[in-house]
């Protein structure tokens, strides 16, 4: 039964193929097979959001996706946020605002927050808190995280727009 299945997918813009067993989660394959260890396993049951990735642009818990379901899909992980050595404004604002301590929850928050700002560049504080309610942080507390997302929204709205456009070409394949 543990026949290996061939899966073709796109991860952070790069066509990617891997072999997996039916029972393996996408998180397991990302971390253990593909060595994309940015996504974390906090709970393994959909409660903490540390494993959040974008599946065809939609945030999902990769611990609750079978790796075989990634066939033909377009996946973005936290590794896909920075452009070369330049951090995404969200990452920069999390750093500057000290919105992380142990950092286990951070990749999940970054990916969910990116999905939010992609859809809604000027979310209210309430909206940010609601959309991030599937991400748990046990050490930083949520205020700094929410503020970092607000700062990133401002950065993206001003000079961030230009940065986004400049970056659009090489990253076109990732979206």
């Amino acid at each position: 039964m543990s026949k290996r299945i061939h899966v073709s997918t796109t991860i952070n813009g790069a066509p990617t193929e891997f072999l997996c067993e039916a029972r393996q989660s996408l998180l397991e394959v990302l971390r253990d097979t593909l060595r994309l260890t940015g996504s974390k396993e906090g709970c393994g049951n959909g409660n903490c959001g540390a494993c959040t990735v974008l599946l065809d642009g939609v945030p999902v818990d990769s611990c609750l996706v079978l790796a075989v379901e990634a066939e033909g899909a377009d996946i973005t992980t936290v590794e896909g946020l920075a452009h070369d050595t330049r951090l995404h404004p969200l990452q920069q604002c999390f750093l500057e605002g000290a919105a992380l301590q142990c950092g286990i929850c951070t990749p999940g928050f970054l990916v969910t927050a990116k999905a939010l700002l992609d859809r809604n560049p000027k979310p209210t504080e309430h909206k940010i808190r609601f959309q991030l309610s599937g991400n748990l942080c046990r050490c930083t507390g949520y205020d700094k995280i929410v503020r970092a997302v607000q700062e990133a929204a401002k950065a993206l709205d001003g000079n961030g727009r230009a940065e986004k456009k400049a970056a659009a070409k090489p990253r076109a394949a990732a979206h």
């Binding site: 959909g46 959001g49 959040t52 599946l55 939609v58 945030p59 999902v60 818990d61 609750l64 996706v65 969910t112 999905a115 959309q131 991030l132 309610s133 599937g134 991400n135």
Partner: peptide, 9 residues
């Protein structure tokens, strides 16, 4: 039903 990530699936 769950958070946003759950609602995505």
């Amino acid at each position: 039903i769950g958070g946003w990530q759950i609602q995505g699936r």
